[in-house]
Amino acid sequence: MKMAVARTGIKDVARLAGVSVATVSKVFNPSRTTNIRMSESTRRRVLEAAEQLDYTPNYGATLLRGQSSHTIGFSLSLPAEVGAMYMSDYPREILNGLGQAAEAGGYQILLIHGGDYRNYMDIERIDALVILGFRVISNARQAEMIEMFQRFNRRQYPYVVINNSCDALPVPSINLDNRHGVKLIAELIRRKGYSSVGFVGELTSNPQSHLVERENLLREFLAGSGINCDESVFLNGARPGVPDLPRTGLYSHTDGMEAVRLLHRRGTLPRCLVCGNDTIAQGVICAAAQLGIRIPEELAIIGFDDLLYSQFFNPPLTTVHQPYEEFGRLAYEYVIRKLADPDHFAQIEIKPTLMERSTT
């Protein structure tokens, strides 16, 4: 006669971690309203105990084990990348594509934020997870992020990361081909015959890695062209004499405004400024207007992203187009396939296009 094996319960986790059952419940249901406060060390101790006991609680009394929640989680960032919930135009457009595809497929979207998304998967609160990747150069919780991905991979959870990669291990992802996008910019610059080019990214000691990649690619594609690409007009990350501006979310108009003011004061404003994203470009346009700099006659401006409002800038912005709604649709299609086939794995790369408008 086969003996029944008792399933590990919440009391076992509490006993091993040396905490109350209520504390364990709080850890595994972070969205629940409760007055329980806990330290990071306590939360980690509970998670380690749960991992040791292979404890994976079900979500809610209404969900039977194995029953689908028909919910896809949408996370705004990786752990510690954004200090508070921050919904810029970038995630909104991706969410539009994801939401439309999910609705057509009979799924709902749960917007989540908080860093460690293992809980939502472990307790079956969501069937799949789509994570927006904002990867800064230095992330204090990088090890935790890698550990989270390792757990997802080990348990074959349906998840995908948009616009991010992880050097430590393979993760399913949907990424923009930055190399192709910057190549389109360099070809435009050569065709227009601009004599000098600069780059404006984030004026902070810890910029996003994809902005650093775009800056380096621009130098690479313009090398040997005879176009002046002096280091002093490439403003991204820590530079001598460049202010370290406080972050507001991750995209800041202030970066563009302060960069133009700084270059104007120095008398080193180049003929063309390439911006790491459209929000920075909007700040560049605003500062140029305040300083009486004519666009594009005196200063050409090129952005990156093609957000919905970029065509309505004054003047309309030349920029690299990212199909954000397509990112959302592809993310939905990936996780749905992963639900049906746990062994499915893909890293998708999308080639952008150039939208040439009145700033060049």
Rank of each mutant, 00 (worst) to 15 (best):
R7F: 07
A17Y: 03
V21A: 09
A22C: 08
T23D: 00
N35D: 15
I36R: 07
M38Q: 04
E40D: 09
R43Y: 01
V46L: 00
E48R: 04
T62P: 01
L64D: 10
Q67F: 09
G73W: 04
V82P: 00
G83Y: 10
G83N: 07
S88T: 02
S88R: 02
R92Q: 14
Q100T: 14
G114I: 14
G115L: 10
N119Y: 00
Y120N: 06
Y120A: 03
I123T: 09
E124Q: 14
E124F: 05
L129C: 06
F134K: 14
E144I: 12
P158E: 03
I162D: 06
N164L: 06
D167N: 08
L169Q: 03
V171Y: 01
S173L: 04
K183H: 13
L184P: 08
A186R: 08
R190T: 13
K192T: 13
S195T: 15
S196Y: 14
E215M: 14
R219K: 13
I227S: 07
D230I: 15
L235R: 13
G237C: 08
G237P: 12
G237Y: 11
P240V: 10
L245D: 01
T248H: 11
T248E: 02
T254E: 15
A259K: 05
G267P: 12
P270W: 10
R271E: 15
L273W: 01
C275M: 05
G276P: 15
I280A: 05
I280V: 15
Q282K: 11
Q282H: 13
L299H: 08
A300M: 00
A300H: 00
P316K: 07
T318R: 06
Y324M: 05
E325M: 12
A331V: 12
V335P: 02
K338T: 10
L339M: 13
D341G: 05
L354E: 03
E356P: 13
E356G: 06
S358R: 11
T359V: 08
